[in-house]
Simulated scan of single mutants.
Amino acid sequence: MSMHFSVLASGSTGNAIFVSDGEQSLLVDAGLSGKQMEALFQQVDRDIKQLSGILVTHEHSDHIKGLGVLARKYQLPIYANEKTWKAMEGLIGEIHSDQRFIFNIGEAKTFGSMQVESFGVSHDAAEPMFFVFHQGNKKLTLITDTGYVSDRMKGIIKDSDAFVFESNHDVDMLRMGRYPWSVKRRILSDVGHVSNEDAALALADVIGNQTKRIYLAHLSQDNNMKEIARMSVAQVLQSKGYGVGEQFSLYDTDPKKPTDVVYL
């Protein structure tokens, strides 16, 4: 069966992505409560009990809120790098040793017919990382929670069939918004989050002939809107000569509602 996925939830209140090849299924992050996660799986007609494991990108609460509950209830393996495991101590409760697995930056692990490659990003966490999923010639990239997209990252993620890509904030909305300046400075920094415009500029360097779907992810509830993100990204990409809606399509993600399950 071909690789398929759903962005179960994405935003500043919680993040989770389901990826499967029909034989093995993985959850990337579990940033909502256990009950909310179970409801999201029901909405996409998938069974949490069938998961092969949970991959963790970093220890911030909007990525691990339901992690311990789900792992204990369904006896699921958790994969995270050593620094993230250390940072999660005291945040996710007791996890049995036979459920704890190390997945370090730069490694690749095989799950069924999928090879999952990890890569580092620039974010204010212990050792944040995201993932590229490969199956045959198909490629799915997940990249949010980074202050910028380096040439190294671009080389790893280039020409994916689908991108789940951070488009966190509109810079003007953030600057004029209610956040204290210290928080604004953190978001705008190299270890914060990528803006709509910066997301589009990075995408312009990595979109390839295979690219068909781009999901704008991790939108700030206070400093962005789906319409603004989509319009801003589309305008920049069109100015770079890309046929948005022709070569590929832009899709929204939502903090409470899953995207349709899509087969690559």
Rank of each mutant, 00 (worst) to 15 (best):
M176W: 04
M176Y: 06
G177M: 07
G177Y: 00
G177E: 09
R178K: 14
R178M: 11
R178S: 11
R178H: 07
Y179L: 14
Y179W: 12
P180R: 09
P180W: 06
W181S: 13
W181L: 13
S182A: 14
S182R: 13
S182K: 15
S182W: 10
S182G: 08
S182C: 09
S182Q: 15
V183C: 04
V183G: 02
V183I: 15
K184R: 12
K184C: 09
K184W: 04
K184S: 09
R185E: 10
R185W: 00
R185N: 04
R185S: 05
R185C: 00
R186A: 12
R186G: 03
R186S: 10
R186N: 08
R186E: 10
I187T: 11
L188S: 09
L188F: 13
S189K: 11
D190L: 12
D190Y: 11
D190S: 14
D190R: 14
V191M: 12
V191Q: 14
V191A: 11
V191E: 14
G192W: 06
G192F: 06
G192P: 07
H193S: 08
H193M: 06
V194S: 08
S195E: 10
S195A: 09
N196F: 04
E197P: 00
E197G: 00
E197A: 04
E197M: 02
E197C: 00
E197Q: 05
D198F: 07
D198N: 10
D198E: 13
D198M: 08
D198S: 08
A199P: 00
A199K: 02
A199D: 05
A199S: 15
A199Y: 03
A200Q: 04
A200R: 05
A200H: 06
L201M: 08
L201E: 14
L201P: 00
L201C: 04
L201I: 12
A202R: 02
L203C: 08
A204R: 10
A204L: 07
A204P: 04
D205P: 00
D205A: 02
D205V: 00
D205E: 15
D205H: 01
V206I: 15
V206H: 08
V206G: 01
V206M: 09
V206E: 01
I207A: 00
I207M: 02
I207V: 14
I207Q: 04
I207P: 00
I207H: 03
I207R: 03
I207N: 02
I207K: 01
I207Y: 07
I207E: 03
G208T: 10
G208L: 12
N209M: 11
N209I: 08
N209R: 14
N209S: 13
N209C: 01
Q210R: 15
Q210D: 14
Q210V: 03
T211G: 06
T211D: 04
T211W: 10
K212E: 11
K212L: 05
R213A: 12
R213T: 13
R213K: 14
I214F: 01
I214Y: 03
I214C: 00
I214W: 05
I214T: 08
Y215C: 05
Y215L: 01
Y215T: 06
Y215W: 01
Y215G: 02
L216P: 05
L216K: 12
L216Y: 12
L216D: 05
L216N: 07
L216A: 07
H218A: 10
H218Q: 11
H218W: 02
H218D: 15
